[in-house]
Design a protein around this nucleic acid. Structure first.
Lengths: 364, 364
DNA sequence: CTGAAAGCGCTTACAG
DNA sequence: CTGAAAGCGCTTACAG
């Protein structure tokens, strides 16, 4: 009896009961090739019987891998993190990895030492970064200096040497704009995000491209600045709706600002979408919890996180040589059309109509 | 030169350069008492110079602790998880711990083996569970069987032997109801959550207690069933607003249902709060992204997570003996009064008024 | 107040 | 196809 009762079984217990060496047990567990089928079966049987599970710390100390993936984030939308984590933890589990999360303030003066501490202690096999950390030079420098592989999720801008997973913001924004145009809108406003986030510029680009492709003019003041918050959406809406010629549709660079537009419109007695169509970007949870529900773009956040994990975890030795998909993976977005957008009610753009509502199409 | 350039420094490198044994370095790092001040300083100096950081896997393998806290969750509101993680990761960092998250389906048939796998591989020093996993018998059994300490965050019901961190749902709901009553409302409806979540019952209890204390009758059909989703909030609102005597205020058991009420009311042409006051519970992100912004109750989610971590991490040996705060920690909630609640506009409860809005108090 | 030895439970070369 | 030995980098008794 080599196993003391009470303590968890070790690789020695398995080896003894299976009548092989610990090296062979190790081979089976790591799916290495070159083990006799009979031997493999015998080992697996004992593993199942004893409920043996290799201890991560021992594997990590002895070997070159830690089986840990780190997720560094700072306060992006809760929905974004939640989606990332769902995708990442599930994929990690499939691969025998675990996800360690660390939230840190993007503007902390000692953020590099914070990152260093995490890396040194954990020695993760890879790191996933979300905005805005994925654009933080200090953080990126620490990762490079420590030779820690990393993947950026939706980085502000794609940089050559930095592996990333993104969607095509330009095309997505173009599609949203095309939708509004196809509904008959011509005076369409756009609310931009903060200039330091590349998504802001890309989405604006998509908007402008669609307008141009349809020969629609965009007055300068139809493009309003914002910073991705509800509040700036409200303010931009007020500016837009006090124009002489009011827009009949507003495309906000993200959902929070679109919700601000919605609130402002309702506050002014405008009916959405009859008087004003509103579209956002992100498909945040709130987008479907308001009335009318918001037309928006959904990023496949959990899929993106899965892809990030796959980019960090080396494929099993037994696997077929994977084709090189490159370091910048573009994932498909989805246009989600809901009730906040509709055809123009009339040609009387700018005429305020009170109290009317659209009953027929609403899901509620 | 014992340290090969390129590889990270080990405890041996520190010991050598400081002219002490590795045991002394270990003592300093673990803040054990009984080290000469001079010695300690010398060691710390070398640690700083070499940027030495003990490797988690080695500490974990050699010692009794893993310095890992696990967070098990399944799809609670994104905001809830995000708050929990912010609090937990920050507190973990302060204590030299790390947070490993695992999301798992509450109704997975093999959830116990999933939990087992995590525990066996990681040997976390503790686990934090969020709803609904914290009420899952299979999960709880695995944790007990493996002697893994755990803390439940907002469990469905408090059970004696299970450490938990909660808020006082009954009192919070009572306060919300008192607010509505103080605004002059008498016909107040309540929308309940799913019966299997204890919070549903506790919040109903608080509502009923407040009504009773003020001598207000609650007709049976003023208490409507729901399941914490937007959709059931919409449905309950339709039932309530088709009564002969309409309620002038609706208190929904959570924000998602309150948002449903808001949407339904707006859809019916009612003005909130002039025609109908609406209150929720949770302070979800969407609560402040709608118009009018929702009156609700905020759980101090990140504080609760911090407390949970503290319950799992043993205090340093050098610390003063902590007073026993018990296994059920109640944290303070916060009543957040926003624009969706106001005094009754008239005595004409049930009379539908179209198109009016409340301009003055809105923050937008 | 300090240290020498053993050992945690695996993987990594290396050998056959 | 399989195994014996060494070692990863710490902490745990134990000793002085």
């Amino acid at each position: 009896m080599s196993s003391k009762t009470g303590s968890a079984p070790t690789i020695f217990d398995v080896a003894e009961q299976a009548g092989v060496s610990i090296k062979t047990v190790s081979r089976v567990l790591n799916r290495e090739s070159g083990v006799h089928d009979k031997t493999r079966e015998k080992v697996l049987k004992v593993v199942a019987t004893l409920k043996y599970r290799p201890k991560l710390s021992a594997r990590s100390l002895a070997g070159a891998r830690s089986y840990l993936i780190g997720l560094l984030y700072y306060d992006p939308s809760a929905a974004f993190v939640a989606g990332v984590q769902r995708g990442a933890t599930l994929r990690c589990r499939e691969l025998g990895y675990h996800l360690v999360v660390e939230s840190m303030h993007n503007d902390a003066a000692d953020i590099d030492s914070q990152v260093d501490r995490v890396i040194s202690a954990l020695r993760p096999d890879g790191m996933i970064l979300t905005p805005p950390l994925c654009d933080n030079p200090k953080v990126l420098k620490m990762l490079r200096d420590s030779d820690t592989p990393y993947v950026l999720l939706s980085p502000g801008r794609a940089v050559k040497g930095r592996p990333s997973v993104v969607i095509d913001d330009v095309h997505a924004a173009e599609e949203v704009t095309n939708l509004l145009i196809s509904l008959g809108h011509e005076t369409i406003a756009f609310i931009q995000g903060p200039p330091d986030q590349a998504a802001s510029g890309l989405r604006l680009e998509g908007f402008q491209r669609a307008m141009k492709n349809h020969g629609l003019k965009v007055d300068a003041d139809l493009i309003q600045p914002g910073d991705f918050t509800f509040h700036t959406g409200v303010e931009a809406a007020h500016r837009l709706l006090s124009r002489r010629v009011k827009p009949t549709a507003v495309f906000a660079g993200n959902d929070d600002m679109a919700l601000g537009v919605l609130a402002a419109a309702q506050r002014l007695g405008l009916s959405v979408p009859a008087d004003l169509s509103v579209a956002g970007f992100d498909d945040s949870p709130a987008a479907s919890l308001v009335w009318p529900a918001l037309t928006t773009v959904r990023q496949p956040v959990d899929l993106m996180a899965r892809v990030a994990v796959d980019m960090l975890v080396p494929p099993p030795a037994s696997a077929a040589p994977a084709e090189d998909l490159g370091n910048h993976r573009v994932q498909p977005y989805e246009l989600v059309v809901r009730d906040s957008t509709s055809a123009r009610r009339s040609e009387l753009a700018g005429v305020k109509v009170l109290g009317s509502q659209r009953y027929e199409a609403s899901g509620i």
